[in-house]
Computed example of a mutant assay.
Amino acid sequence: MKLKQPAIIAFLCLFFFISVTRAQNRSVIIPGNIKLPQDSVINNLITALNGFLAQKDKPIKSNTAILKDEFLETSALLDEMMGIEQNDATKDAAFYKPYLINLVKQDAGVYAVQLSYIGVADGSPLLKATFSLLAKKVDGVFYFYSPLKQNTKGWRTKKQGNITFKFKDELDVADAKAFQQNVALIDGRLNANKPILQYYCDSFLEAQHLLGVDYKADYAGVVNNNLTANSDEQSLIVNGWSSGQHRFDPHDLFHDRLRTVMSSEVINRPVDEGCAYLYGGSWGKNWAEVSALFNAYVNENPNADWLQLYLDGKNYQNDGGKILKISYMINALIVQKLEKEKGFGAVMELLACGKREPGDANYFKALEKLTGISKGNFNTEVGKLVHGN
């Protein structure tokens, strides 16, 4: 079939528009009113920045634009930047675009870069996040990294065992000791020993800023949280936990330490969460407290269909968004029994049964092998566990 000339022109225009749009989705947008340094290398820096952004969602080890001396800290920042263009409501993977909002020359060959990810809906701008990076020219090539070390260069350091603490003035010795004891308990189960580098921040807001997260919509209103990353040699915790009995969450600590010995690609989340409930409680409540809440639910629902509740991901508590899930609690009870009867090696096998999938076939296959509990007898066997038989 031969296309007429107007159709060919229309097709080429459409092709050109799509190509330009896709290129813009991958490239930083420079607003007309931004003042750039009068420097001959700026064009090279912008080109390198686009290369960095093009790689940010790939496996971190394959990102060739990271300054290697700052790999661990930049890994944590890239975790926060991953998938930032996505609009979850509209499922638009490129809704938020990167805008260069500041570029400042610091020392020789070092530049501070600030990016905002902005989308437009119904004529109104929507800010998803703003990030700060540093760019350093090495052997004629620009590499990018988190400002964490620069932002904390005046901080003090204290090492206890395989944990290095970074802090401003004085270390809370009691809290550091409690943290070390919790790490030892978890590592003993996991057979983990990766050293930890922990920054004690005054708040989660400060933790974000120090790492290079100036604003992230996902964290608006969040008071307590940590920012973490792992390299082959060390674990990083930028601690923004500022309330509670201790400056850390034993629940999240289990998740962090598990990922030092097991790939997140094979971890089954309900089992992982069940372990975190058992060894660290949840939402500031300890194991006894989350168990008591579940026992109250059991007493109020004597004829519960545990299999269906598990498959449907139902909650047994929702305190203003602080959710406790039935599937997590069931796994906590299963893990408790499994560890007692077969040791933690069996628990590790259940943890590594694979990410949750529709129908949970991988989970039930591993569960039946390790415990004899299957879909067919799930209600009976879980009923025994929840009633303490």
Rank of each mutant, 00 (worst) to 15 (best):
Met329Glu: 11
Gly345Val: 10
Ala352Val: 02
Asn379Phe: 10
Asp57Trp: 06
Gln208Ile: 01
Ala184Gln: 14
Gly188Gln: 09
Lys337Pro: 00
Asn389Lys: 15
Gly320Cys: 07
His387Ser: 11
Ser62Phe: 09
Phe248Leu: 04
His255Met: 10
Ile330Lys: 00
Lys149Ile: 11
Phe11Lys: 11
Asp272Ser: 15
Tyr310Ala: 02
Thr228Ile: 13
Pro59Phe: 13
Ala332Met: 06
Lys158Thr: 07
Lys35His: 12
Ser291His: 12
Asn151Ile: 00
Ser132Thr: 14
Glu368Lys: 14
Ala94Val: 08
Asp139Ile: 00
Glu381Val: 01
Cys13Phe: 15
Ala23Asn: 12
Glu349Cys: 01
Ala178Cys: 00
Asn331Val: 09
Leu127Ile: 13
Leu367Ile: 06
Asn102Phe: 01
Lys68Val: 13
Val20Cys: 12
Leu211Ala: 08
Ala129Leu: 06
Asn239Leu: 02
Val261Trp: 08
Gln106Ser: 14
Tyr111Trp: 10
Lys314Thr: 08
Gln86Asn: 14
Val386Tyr: 08
Asp252His: 06
Cys201Ser: 06
Ile267Pro: 01
Leu36Thr: 07
Asn286Lys: 11
Asp79Val: 01
Gly354Val: 08
Leu278Tyr: 12
Asn389His: 13
Thr380Arg: 15
Leu309Thr: 05
Lys56Arg: 15
Val238Pro: 01
Glu233Lys: 15
Leu127Phe: 10
Lys384Asp: 08
Val104Ala: 14
Asp122Cys: 00
Gly284Glu: 06
Asn63Met: 09
Thr164His: 07
Pro98Lys: 01
Ala65Cys: 09
Lys158Asp: 08
Val386Thr: 10
Pro250Gly: 03
Gly343Cys: 09
Val28Asp: 05
Glu368Thr: 14
Ser291Cys: 11
Pro195Ala: 12
Asp214Tyr: 02
Gln208Ala: 07
Val290Pro: 01
Ser62Asp: 14
Val120Arg: 11
Asn224Glu: 08
Val238Trp: 00
Ala23Tyr: 15
Ser282Gly: 03
Ser291Met: 12
Lys58His: 11
Tyr310Arg: 04
Tyr363Gly: 05
Leu309Glu: 07
Ser263Phe: 06
Leu338Ser: 08
Ile267Met: 10
Lys128Asp: 05
Leu350Glu: 06
Gln5Pro: 14
Tyr96Ala: 05
Ala192Gly: 12
Ser146Asp: 03
Ser124Lys: 15
His255Gln: 03
Phe344Thr: 03
Tyr96Lys: 04
Glu339Lys: 09
Asn25Ala: 14
Asn331Gln: 12
Ala112Asn: 12
Tyr277Asn: 04
Lys2Tyr: 10
Leu258Tyr: 07
Ile101Lys: 10
Leu311Trp: 02
Val41Phe: 11
Ala276Met: 09
Gly376Phe: 04
Ser242Ala: 14
Leu77Cys: 07
Phe95Trp: 05
Ala112Cys: 07
Tyr279Pro: 00
Asp305Lys: 08
Leu278Asn: 01
Ala65Asp: 09
Ile118Trp: 00
Val138Leu: 12
Glu233Pro: 00
Gly359Ile: 06
Asp139Tyr: 12
Ile330Glu: 14
Trp283Leu: 05
Arg22Asp: 09
Phe167Gly: 05
Ile326Glu: 06
Glu206Arg: 02
Asn44Lys: 14
Val386Gly: 08
Leu227Ala: 02
Val347Gly: 04
